[in-house]
Simulated assay, not measured.
Amino acid sequence: MEPRNQTDVSEFLLLALTEDMELQPLLFSLFLSMYLVTVLGNLLIILAVSSDPHLHTPMYFFLSNLSFTDICFSTTTIPKMLVNLQAQNQSITYAGCLTQVCFVMIFSTLESFLLGVMAYDRYVAICHPLRYMVIMDTRFCGLLILVSLLVSVVDALLHSLMLLRLSFCTDLETLYFFCEVFQVIKVACSEILINNIILYFAVSILGVLPFFAIIFSYTQIVSSILRMPSAGGKYKAFSTCGSHISVVSLFYGTAFGSYISTTFTHFSKETAVASMIYTMVTPMMNPFIYSLRNRDMKAALRSVIRGTTAFQ
């Protein structure tokens, strides 16, 4: 395959979910249901936090931002998959692919930062309870969200602009179920060393740094909890962290599995499925994790549902 001179390929091919035509309606229904559950579940979290005065605290403020990020994260990938399934056409335009790359990076990085911020919030609440409201005031919480969003956008724009310098082959190239930056770089026909250096450097900083912040926070949290004399106090402290630990494990477990399989294995449907779980299943599960493990959230959600039913 010869590279195109000074131009880019007009479109890419995304990996077909199945070659069996009879399974396509079933897959369409499955992914549509996953998307609707993701959007509805996270919207309920946002409505519950905004409508219940008892949830107007930093922890739930960050949770509502995480839910909004999950909605956006799913919207970058699932609707295009549904359109392709319905149209039986796996193509995506070059501009559409780069746009998808940009938004996937924005919301995946933002989710990573939000999980780190939420870990810090739990650290302050448990290790410095008397100073909690002073440290985690409204201005500081808003600043944390703003900085996280700004860094995520700048990082995504940098990698998207770096993709513009690459040339691609004249034949259509097959990517994953969606356009993911590692795969787009792999199918380029021009020199990709600079792209890889910048990409892996950014991932090591922006991805690993929040993870180590989470590890540090929970190391301090566990140390503080173990020093508590009351068994009831220990249980209460652990219960406030349980939902967050579950979400962190789900997000980073699937994310690391996806990127490790992408980096060290050849292209296959198995590695593509790992990437799909990371971008689709995690946003869908977060509302269930927080609602099932949190008494205050369950009460707020019941109030929202009753209010919605009464309005109808």
Rank of each mutant, 00 (worst) to 15 (best):
F28E: 10
V39N: 04
N286R: 12
L30Q: 10
F107H: 08
I185P: 01
Y218V: 05
D52N: 15
M1H: 10
K186E: 13
M285G: 04
L98K: 00
M34N: 13
V281E: 08
V124R: 01
A231Q: 15
H266S: 15
T69S: 13
Y120L: 13
L27N: 04
T69W: 02
R295W: 08
L150K: 12
V247C: 11
I135W: 02
P25W: 08
A48C: 10
S303I: 09
T174E: 15
M136V: 07
V49G: 03
S108T: 14
A255V: 02
L199N: 01
D171P: 02
Q183H: 10
F107Y: 14
S112I: 05
M136P: 01
M59I: 07
E11V: 06
V151I: 14
Y120F: 15
A48H: 04
V134T: 13
G41A: 12
S230L: 14
T99G: 04
I106W: 01
I135E: 06
V181E: 00
L82D: 05
G41H: 05
T265S: 15
T75N: 08
V304S: 08
K80S: 13
V117I: 14
L143D: 11
Y259M: 03
I192L: 03
V247L: 12
F31C: 03
S204T: 13
S249K: 08
I221D: 00
L144H: 06
Y123D: 09
K298E: 12
T263D: 04
L30V: 11
R227Y: 04
L40Y: 11
V134A: 11
T262F: 06
V181A: 01
P53C: 08
M285I: 11
L292I: 12
C102M: 11
Q88R: 07
I305C: 14
